[in-house]
Nucleic acid binder design. Sequence first.
DNA 1: GGCAAATATTGATCTGGATCATGTTATTAA
DNA 2: TTAATAACATGATCCAGATCAATATTTGCC
Lengths: 231, 231
Amino acid sequence: MTRDQKINSCTVGLEKCTCFELLTEEQTELIDNNLVEVGFSKGETICKQGTFATHVIYLTKGLVKVHMDGTQGSLILKIVPENHLVALTALLEGNNVFPYSVTAYVDSVVKLINIATFKKIINENAKFAAEIINTLNSNTLQTFGRFYCLTNKQAYGRLADIILCLSEKIFKQKVFELLLTRKELAELSGMTTENVIRMLKKFREDGLIEMEGKKVKIKNSKLLKKISNYG
Amino acid sequence: MTRDQKINSCTVGLEKCTCFELLTEEQTELIDNNLVEVGFSKGETICKQGTFATHVIYLTKGLVKVHMDGTQGSLILKIVPENHLVALTALLEGNNVFPYSVTAYVDSVVKLINIATFKKIINENAKFAAEIINTLNSNTLQTFGRFYCLTNKQAYGRLADIILCLSEKIFKQKVFELLLTRKELAELSGMTTENVIRMLKKFREDGLIEMEGKKVKIKNSKLLKKISNYG
DNA sequence: GGCAAATATTGATCTGGATCATGTTATTAA
DNA sequence: TTAATAACATGATCCAGATCAATATTTGCC
């Protein structure tokens, strides 16, 4: 069996959400009349696991994490940047509560879209539904990659993954302001804060990255990718 | 923060697929004219990660595993029992290859539905599309549970999960014929074969299960659930 | 029916990363 | 301005589960 398939283990979806362009004028108006726009500060819970799912969330501005909390601790399923739909799982019939929480990493703005309205439009507009199917599949693929990363890679590989993901997908630059604390990085890469610190130090010593305060600079992304890819 | 949420970590979807009941006569005929039914023997690859995704798979009979293989080994994303759609991710626009492989655990029969036909119907029939959205969301929820299980639980908890899942969701009995080898159980619960054997022995010694040849009997499902739930 | 190849089992050893302890430096709030 | 709190850092120890090694047992198949 060949085991050389490249698996994308990045944490965020890439594509901008385009589904709303497929609505009729009437449907656009219906949505607009059935949503509220709300701001959340850094650290605030946008939706809480276990509460009634009365709306779908569209992130207008900011960066959020989607996480499940259980008896054995917390798992970050994904992080979502702006211009993305967030809580589509809420659409599932017969499951009227959020299966996860959504928390703001930075100050964020969301549109809360009434779920009944959203469902109504899906059932009326097949093109819109098709685009939602596309979004769901894209999310799934994303999650599978992260799933693989967290279960099959070693700690160095997981951390390299997260750093590359932040650089390439979120901030889209080699040099960026790290918004996340070591603790948050640890949660994201599925290890302890202490180990994130130790490993970042190692990365610095080996000339893979440079850090000054909150500024992070990718020095050797090729080798970083190798580490991500080996484990 | 409360951390007492019950998370379903079972590996398979529950609901029977009902989407085809929503088709018009014409659409049903269109599907029927664009599918082939194929049998696969135990162990055979039904679709291979990285090959062109030309069809959606509907499992008529049998039991299959969906898995991703990469440089760091293999990950079983889920197992799927009969009467379920399997490779819906293939629908994703711009992603024309299967992101995972599907392999038969036992002799199985599948319907391979032409993907263009499937997409055409989604774009024409909003109710059908809505049902597909429902299925996708159900799958997602399922995967999240397994994701949580594999990343946050200890080995005993993971094994207990798999045994309960097999008993309750797949075979729907307290006593069942274990179709899977120790090695397959190990893959499924994310540990080594040796440890599966040791832990099964421990479960037997502690009176949680009874085993005779391939027959497995759940003796104390309450305690087994506790182990699954603690870790 | 026999033999090669999986599969199952058990014990000994090793190790990646968690946990614990302790201290230092930034923020935040009062 | 300072007290409190959270973030950052580093070293010492520990442990769940992997890896390795060495049979036993089953299964498929010519």
